[in-house]
Structure formats: C-alpha cells, structure tokens
Computed example of a mutant assay.
Amino acid sequence: MQRTNGIILGIGMGLCIISCEQKGKTEQQEKSVDRLENFVDSVETAVNREANHNWTVLDNRYNKLVSNVEASYDDSKEKAREKYEDLEERYEEAKVEARNKTAKMQEDAERHMSNVESWWERNTARAQQGTRNTMDDIEEGAKDSWEWLEKNTDKLGDDIRARYEKIKSDLEG
C-alpha cells in the first residue's frame, strides 16, 4: 500500500481504496465559518451603533460568505447548514433590529421636527419683524426637540434634514 497526498492506493492486491484526508478540508470549513461569523459579528456591532446601512451590499457579502461555507463542505450542505444556522439567524435579527431602529429614528425625528416647526410657525412673524430669535428664545419643549435634532443631524432622513436646515438657516439670519 502506498499513501500519496491523502489517497491510499492498494496496488498489486486488486484493491483500490481512495480516502480523502479531512484535515485540510476541516481547516477550510472552519475558516469559511469563521469569516461568516466575523461578518455577522461586525454587522451586529454596526447595527448597534447606527441603523442605516446599505443592506443590498451587506446581503450580497453575506450570501457570498454563505456560499463559501457551503462550498467548503462540498456535497454535505446539511453539515454546513448546521454550522451556520445560528449565524444566519443572528444576521436576520440584526436586519430586523436595524429596520426597527430606523423606523424609531424616523418617528422621533418627525416628532421633534414637528415640535420645532410648530414653534417656528408661532414665532415667524416676530422673526420677520426683525427680532433675532436665538436658542435662548426657544420655548422649553421646542428647545429639547431642537437639541435632539442638532445631535442627530447626520442620522436624519433627507426630508427632515432639509426642513431642519431651513429653520436653522432662518434662525441664523
């Protein structure tokens, strides 16, 4: 019997046994699953920091990593499924969390913007008469909303950001 590159050949006995050595394959499997896990971890971390992401790009990367995991298991995709089922669930949960955070952010932004716009409408005539309105003049409820909008400007949707910037520009004269 002779062993060559993980294949055992029985020569001269009328027997030929081919056996694949699993050490290299197992390492490739582990690496592909590790890459997928690292990606899911980074998506979860990113969603915790900021909910707005390009999910098309993230989904494409995720699907490629899943394909790599499946390919590393050749025809035993069931084994691959067992390995990354938890990762798939975590990834989908991160997407749902991001959607929920984005929706909440939009609701909060609309509420704060409406509050500031309401204050602005009540006080516009005074501003147009030459009274310079400053942050000190803003009523307490509107001031909290204004501060929230200031703090979250980079996270606002285009519509709310434009409305905010218009009032800010008018306030600055």
Rank of each mutant, 00 (worst) to 15 (best):
A98R: 07
A162W: 07
Y62C: 07
T153L: 15
L87F: 10
D144W: 07
H112N: 15
E97L: 14
F39W: 01
G141N: 14
Q128D: 11
A51P: 06
A103C: 04
K83Y: 02
L15D: 09
I7D: 09
E27K: 15
R132W: 01
T131V: 12
N152L: 08
F39G: 02
A98T: 10
W120N: 02
I7Q: 15
E172L: 11
R90L: 06
L65F: 08
K95H: 14
A94T: 04
E92W: 07
D75V: 02
N48A: 11
D34W: 04
W146D: 08
T4E: 15
E88F: 11
E139T: 08
G24S: 11
D75I: 04
A46C: 03
E92P: 02
W55M: 06
E30D: 12
L58K: 12
E139F: 06
W148R: 06
A125K: 14
E110Y: 10
L87G: 01
K79R: 12
S19W: 07
E27C: 00
G173Y: 05
E93G: 07
S76Y: 11
V57W: 07
E88S: 13
W146E: 05
G10Q: 11
L149W: 01
W55R: 02
A94W: 01
W146G: 04
W148G: 03
D75K: 13
A127E: 06
T26C: 07
G10R: 08
R49L: 09
W146I: 02
W55S: 04
N152D: 09
V57M: 14
Q29E: 07
Q29F: 00
S72C: 06
K64E: 11
V96K: 15
D158N: 14
G157S: 12
S19E: 13
K104A: 09
S118L: 07
R122F: 03
I160L: 08
D34I: 02
W146K: 04
D144P: 00
D144M: 09
D158S: 15
R122I: 02
V40A: 00
A80R: 02
R49T: 05
E110I: 11
E147F: 08
R90W: 10
Y73C: 01
V40E: 02
G157Q: 06
E50Q: 14
I138W: 01
K23L: 13
Y62A: 10
D136W: 05
G173W: 05
R3V: 12
G14H: 05
R126N: 03
H53E: 02
T4I: 13
S76E: 12
S42N: 15
N68S: 09
G14A: 03
R126I: 06
E50N: 14
K104L: 08
E85H: 12
E172G: 04
A109Q: 09
Y73A: 00
Y73W: 06
L149M: 03
